[in-house]
Design a protein around this nucleic acid. Sequence first.
DNA 1: CTTAATTGATATAAATATAGTATCAGTTAG
DNA 2: CTAACTGATACTATATTTATATCAATTAAG
Lengths: 158, 158
Amino acid sequence: MKVLTKKTDYAIRALLMLGAKRGSYVSVRSIAVEQDMPYQFLRGVLQEMIRHGLIVSKEGVQGGFMLAKEPDEIGVKQLIEIFQGTVQVSECMFRKQLCANRSRCVLRHEIMRIEQVVSDEFEQVTIGKLLRKLNAASNLMPALTDGEKPDSTILKEE
Amino acid sequence: MKVLTKKTDYAIRALLMLGAKRGSYVSVRSIAVEQDMPYQFLRGVLQEMIRHGLIVSKEGVQGGFMLAKEPDEIGVKQLIEIFQGTVQVSECMFRKQLCANRSRCVLRHEIMRIEQVVSDEFEQVTIGKLLRKLNAASNLMPALTDGEKPDSTILKEE
DNA sequence: CTTAATTGATATAAATATAGTATCAGTTAG
DNA sequence: CTAACTGATACTATATTTATATCAATTAAG
Ligand code: FES
Ligand code: FES
């Protein structure tokens, strides 16, 4: 069971890079290269985030993307919703005769409770939070802060 | 974002029926008809549960399936794992240069924490628990307890 | 004022996962 | 013997995810 799809995964990572380089425009190409993500695919992801007002862009040479909100205002929950749709544990499980009285259905109740827990959990995780954790351990994540490229041997290149 | 697939959904509902009729063998056909699930597909789901020791079967006329464990011992988490694979929020997000030191990676840490929360949440929900809730509200779920068949017109037969 | 580096927009294809169907052989109660 | 069952497995269809490809518009820099 995979909770985050590539789009969400890429979105988070791209946002972390934008967060690490706040104030300047960062090109898709540079993100794609540094994080080893497919260029065109990533572009689509970023454009989607523009539509949702998470980032802004500037066209042309020296153009790129920049955060449009505070990192703490961007939660993973929102990203999941953008790229994977609303968190829903299941549709109505007993959609036939059993669901005559949906609003009081106990199964539905249990399901919605879990949905809430999962949802809350993801909401707490913001780009800001992740950035702070990264900074606190920046020695482990060099590529987000400078251009160093250690250990490129594990890589499968595209 | 859909957390439960059809297989898991069907599995839960089938187990609830087996739980409601404990002690006797219940045929796939009767479950499929009563719950409006595709017959052959459901068979596959039940066979998978046999392989995992959740239920037992008896062949031939009057055959069918029966729970092999206490309802409280069957958690939705296990069902998810059987039909959708282990709960994993994401693979290693930064599989390139950033992950030189995986064991201490803060992102990975955060990810695994959420995995645990989600996982725990589903583990708590057992077939037994759901059954008790159903019994407490059995008036809302007639088909699980008796043979009533209201509203059979919506059915698409195979 | 041309060029190369960029984003905007959109169409399409490839890969994978999910959902559903079909069939044949073996078992068993009646 | 037969009809109601499961065991096993191969197959098809649909949906979703992932990735690529193009062309137009914008802009900094020489
Ligand atoms: S699961 Fe549909 S109302 Fe109960
Ligand atoms: S996400 Fe891979 S080790 Fe950090």
